[in-house]
Amino acid sequence: MIRFFLSRLLQAMPVIFIVITATFFLIRSAPGGPFDADKVVSQEVIERLNERYNLDAPIHQQYFDYLSHLIRGDFGPSFRYTNRSVTEMIGAGLPITFELAIYAIMIALIIGISAGMLAAVRPNTAQDYIPMSLAMTGICMPSFLLGPLLVLVFGIWLQWLPVSGWGYSPGDKILPAITLGSTYAAYIARLTRGGMLEVLNQDYIRTAKAKGLSTSKIIFKHALRGGLAPVVAFLGPAIAGLLAGSFVVETIFQIPGLGRFYVQAAFNRDYTMIMGTTILLSCLIVFLNMLSDLLAVWLNPRLTLDAKH
């Protein structure tokens, strides 16, 4: 176990280092800078700003300065919001995005696994075609279309749920969570169906049937664990993707989460903010992938941690 964590950590370090380096130089090679604005600002002001944010130093110097701060856990000040540090802003946005992601993935798992199981039990019948067509629609439908559509139906026509906000009025978390979760529900439904179909064709399912077990017992006791293996493998990257991809939903529903900061930072050339969120997300991806590997080992007695890495 410890060996597994250590080896994963060793593998992750160069990955994250490359992400940091690439991001650092890429954002600086893009045209424009943090203090380019529509307003004409005097040369003197620009120079003083550059000096204050260490932008007048040669680029390699900036890079090493940034790294040395980073090692001490300092993400630096935001270039856009005076007197606010990146750490502070991430600290404010992350919990909200995290909460949204948890709701979304829960919705995705519940809907996706049940739909996939229904489909797998009676393949090539209406019970298969209907949920799978819905899943295909779910995959094809981008959240910037689904979100406003849901708002239109449930918020404006039916007036059941609030149209935006996060924690201001009861029920305002429902629509964003559904919007964000639906694409993943669709993927999970398809993965569950595929995994379950494969397992249900195994000889040991026939053995279970020959023991006199009912269909539901066969599915839940004998098939589900193996059938969910693809879903488990998908879960790590999915949650990370959910966090990174939440900006659309956050924008639609006016949620003050991390995703919105991320996008705004890119538009504003808020260098430190971009760096901070990118590093955070890449760490999360590495961590969540490790978690889903651990889960896969726990589910499947044939795998051991040693054999996984």
């Binding site: 195994q202 000889d203 040991y204 026939r206 053995t207 279970a208 049937k209 020959a210 023991k211 006199g212 077990l213 009912s214 006791k221 004998h222 664990r225 193996g226 589910l299 499947n300 007695p301 044939r302």
Partner: peptide, 26 residues
């Protein structure tokens, strides 16, 4: 009725013991 007979009054042994047992259960 068949569930009451299968595995109780009539049992089966299958060809391939590698695949006839569920790998996920002891």
């Amino acid at each position: 009725t068949m569930r009451g007979i299968r595995g109780k009054r009539i049992s089966m042994i299958f060809q391939d013991p590698m695949t006839a047992l569920n790998p996920y259960l002891s």
